[in-house]
Amino acid sequence: MSTMPAVVAVNTFREAVRDRVLYNLIIFALMMIGGAILVGEISIGVHQMVIVNLGLSAISIFGIIMAIFIGVGLVHKEMEKRTLYSLLAKPIRRWEFLVGKFAGLLLTLLVNTALMTLGLTGALYYVSRTFQRSDVAILVAVYFILLELALITALALFFSCFSSPMLSTLYTLGIYVAGVFAPDIKGVSEYTQSPAMAAGARFVYYLLPNFHNFNVIAAAAHGETIPFTLIWHNTLYAALYVILILVAASAVFSGRNLK
C-alpha cells in the first residue's frame, strides 16, 4: 500500500502547527480556568454540570471553526501557492493527495481535541476534587465530537475541490446547520398533512449528514450512560459518510484541469 497519504498527512499536520493553529488552546485554557473559578462563585450545586457543558461546547465550537476554516483551504491553498503542481508531478494519485490532506487535518483536530480534553479534565477535577465512573460519558461525548469534526472536515475538503474558500465555507456551514436541525426536518415529515411534503422531508432527513447524532453533551453533563451500540453505530455512520464524501471528492478532483 502506498505511503503517500501518510506523508501528505504528516506534512499537513506540520503546516497547521507552523501556522500556529494550536494557539486556540490558550483561549480554551483561559476559558476553562475562568469558568472553573467563576462557577464556584456563582452556581449552586451544578458546578460539575456547568463545567462539562462549557468544556464540551467549547471543544465542539473550536473544533468546528478549525475544521471548516482550515478544511476549505486545504486544496485551494496548494493551488494558489502552486505547490500542488510540483506535488502531483511526483508519483502520487489525486485521491491519495485528498486522503492525505483529510487525515492530516484530522490529526491536527485530534491533537487539539485531546489537549482540550485534558484541560477540561483538569477544570473538572478542580471543581469536584474527584472523578466518578459516570465521567466516562464525557470521553464518549468528546469521541462523538471528533466523529462530527471528521465529517465536517470531509465536507470542507469536498467543497474546496471545486470552489473558492469563501463559498466552500458557506456550503459547509450551511450543511452543518441543516444537519444539526435534522430532527426538525424529520418532525416536518411526521406532522405535515401533505404526503409529498412528508416524503420530501424524509428524503432530505436521510440524505443530510445528521450532526444531531453526535450531540450527547447534555447526557454527558447529566452523567448518563451512553449505550455501546450507539457508539459503534455512530462510528460506522461517520465512517460511511466520510468514505462517501471522499469518493465524491476524488471523482470531482480527478476531473479538474489544473493547468
Binding site: 424529520k186 436521510y206 451500540t229 453505530h233 455512520y237 460511511l240
Partner: peptide, 15 residues
C-alpha cells in the same frame, strides 16, 4: 453508501 447510511440512521434514531 447513501442507502447504507439511511438504514443506519433509522437504527441510530431508535438507539
Amino acid at each position: 453508501l447513501f442507502v447504507a447510511i439511511a438504514a443506519l440512521q433509522a437504527r441510530i434514531d431508535v438507539l
